[in-house]
Amino acid sequence: MLQVMGGTVPGAQVLTVYAATTREREAPDSNVFTAGRSDTPNYSAFTISVPPNHQPGRIEWPTDRIDPATTFATLDQGILTRRGFFEQVAASPDGMRDVTVFIHGYNSNFPEALYRLAQMSADAHLDGTPVLFAWPSQAAVAGYVADKDSVTYSRDALADLLSELARDRRVGSINVLAHSMGGWLTVEALRQLRLSGQDDVIDRLAVVLAAPDIDVDVFRAQMEVLGPLSPPLTVLVATDDRALLVSNRLSGARQRVGALDVRDPRVQEAAREGNVAIVDISGLETVDGLNHSRYVNLAALYPELGGGQDEAPGLGLRRAGAFVFNAVGTTISSPFTLVGEALAGE
């Protein structure tokens, strides 16, 4: 998928995605990444073409051959040094540059994660810079335990990435979106930043966890250390997430945060006390048979979000609590509905 095509077609959307990864390179002069763990992060840049026939929320994968007229395609790619990576990510001819960092989940290979970020960036019409943080997932269903070890291995590298971005004054807002097991990695990195006294870094981040594969008790302990964020940490959940049901079984019937029920009064109270915005997105169309990736459809709605009194730009809510996201097609009416009678009059 990452072979360079060189050119695209009229009507295609072209964007550059930067990647920082703890995966090993297959060869020193290659942007082909293995499931091995690199001693130091590797950096790269990819120019990606999104086809004119693109449907929001989808990745048009080739079934026979790569064709920019009908499929995603890589037009160019390059290997970057650490310094070159941060220089290019922050570079902007007209002031500060916003950055979105995406941390993928379990059972994902590098091209899947790269193209998923490209899809969401294209659908959201982002003006900022998309950055992929790719950790060495085995990209196999049977690799759950190995993947959990790999996200643990990658905590320092993610914390370092966020710290470098936050301390560069050429960088504007920093939006962090983490999916599934990448959510556990992200909260661990944030916890590490807090414990090391890097409050200034955390203060610059707006964090969204999509279907986080985190034990509820572990999450509570993490948040006790991390403390409240501003805007509040946003958690996207769905009770019918089958992937998290499997995770629940693998972990000894421990409840996962990404499958919490916002209608449960205990969840509503915990959200308020922990200054967390928990949003049920089960009303969105699913793009997989496991109901685990609904979040990708939010990208197309991104320009319409954040216009209300209680919403921050994008997906971040300015108030804590339990919410239901309401959307019919691409038309949004009162997108976040607060759940819980106790707060209905506020």
Results as ranks from 00 to 15, higher is better:
192 Q>C: 04
120 M>I: 07
59 I>T: 06
136 P>L: 01
311 E>T: 12
65 R>P: 03
184 W>A: 10
140 A>K: 15
289 G>K: 05
36 G>D: 13
27 A>S: 12
278 I>G: 04
153 Y>S: 09
215 D>V: 01
109 N>T: 02
323 F>P: 02
341 E>A: 13
58 R>Y: 09
255 Q>K: 05
105 G>S: 08
75 L>F: 05
170 R>C: 02
197 G>L: 11
319 R>D: 09
346 E>S: 12
203 D>T: 11
248 N>D: 12
30 S>Q: 14
124 A>W: 00
138 Q>N: 06
226 L>C: 07
229 L>M: 15
76 D>V: 05
163 S>V: 03
234 T>I: 09
22 T>V: 06
291 N>E: 15
188 E>P: 02
253 A>W: 04
220 R>E: 11
263 R>Q: 10
302 Y>P: 05
213 D>Y: 02
140 A>M: 14
161 L>G: 04
117 L>H: 01
9 V>A: 08
235 V>G: 02
230 S>W: 12
35 A>W: 07
30 S>W: 01
135 W>P: 00
286 T>K: 01
264 D>V: 03
276 V>T: 06
249 R>K: 15
303 P>D: 09
225 V>N: 09
118 A>L: 06
306 G>E: 07
42 N>C: 10
145 V>M: 13
150 S>K: 13
108 S>N: 15
322 A>T: 06
159 A>H: 07
253 A>Y: 09
231 P>G: 08
211 A>C: 02
133 F>E: 02
326 N>R: 08
111 P>M: 04
267 V>Q: 00
271 A>G: 03
207 V>C: 14
227 G>T: 05
228 P>V: 06
119 Q>R: 11
112 E>F: 10
205 L>Y: 04
181 M>H: 01
136 P>Y: 01
64 D>L: 14
333 S>G: 07
267 V>A: 07
79 I>S: 04
48 I>Y: 01
152 T>N: 15
136 P>M: 00
179 H>D: 12
315 L>Y: 08
59 I>R: 03
107 N>V: 02
277 A>F: 05
83 R>V: 05
119 Q>G: 07
207 V>Y: 11
161 L>C: 06
329 G>S: 11
63 T>R: 14
228 P>F: 04
